[in-house]
Design a protein around this nucleic acid. Sequence first.
DNA 1: CATTGACACTCTGTAATTCAGAGTTATAGA
DNA 2: TCTATAACTCTGAATTACAGAGTGTCAATG
Lengths: 112, 112
Amino acid sequence: MEELDPLLHQPLRTQLVAFLAGAGEQTFSDLKRQLAVSDGNLDAHLKKLLAADYVAVRKESGNGRPQSFFILTPQGLAALNDYVRALQRLLPLAGSGDGLPGGFPGRTLATD
Amino acid sequence: MEELDPLLHQPLRTQLVAFLAGAGEQTFSDLKRQLAVSDGNLDAHLKKLLAADYVAVRKESGNGRPQSFFILTPQGLAALNDYVRALQRLLPLAGSGDGLPGGFPGRTLATD
DNA sequence: CATTGACACTCTGTAATTCAGAGTTATAGA
DNA sequence: TCTATAACTCTGAATTACAGAGTGTCAATG
């Protein structure tokens, strides 16, 4: 069966990686605001992504107050693409236009 | 930000629900074989889906050996559709043809 | 008819994950 | 300098995920 990278297939991390992919380099505070998540939780998930080299950090300190900038690595981007492909194979996402108006393809769900 | 139903956004449960959506009513053993998962784990996740009314069970006993047939409920199907829509909004899944050949849209990932 | 084996679950405990808030360091303003 | 605030980081509790042991039923065999 289709394998879904457990590192990416988690609500907060999926959002996190998707956001980084779309928006590019982000500070800790920006991520915190955008994802509406607690400090500790964000830190924990970022740590996992850093440990897997899906995300890299660049720390700045000296001029203003210290800040960390987080960015998706090539590995992270590749993993995200694999993940999206796995989802597409698993869920018939494509083929029903934009929004799946009629319901999930394949079944009408007989409730008999 | 986009909310991803945590009940569905978990590797095994996503596969489980997607499989039920595509294949219709399935026995416990069929699910176990298809998803290559341990008894206890399958049971635990089915319990969650049953508790949420995403899945219903029909138990047969009398003629052969007792068997449980699991099927997606209308609520489960609706939740799955919502979930797919949420994914589509979160990840730019559509628009790049069949398989995202070029990479994730939106960024080329400057590693500078 | 008792016994053995296999199937179909279900229960229980452990390991891993997720999360929130307390703690730490550093800057900015009064 | 003293206080407030921003930007993290650490710690521990609660939830979740998982595997294997346990329970009950049926079929086959002697």
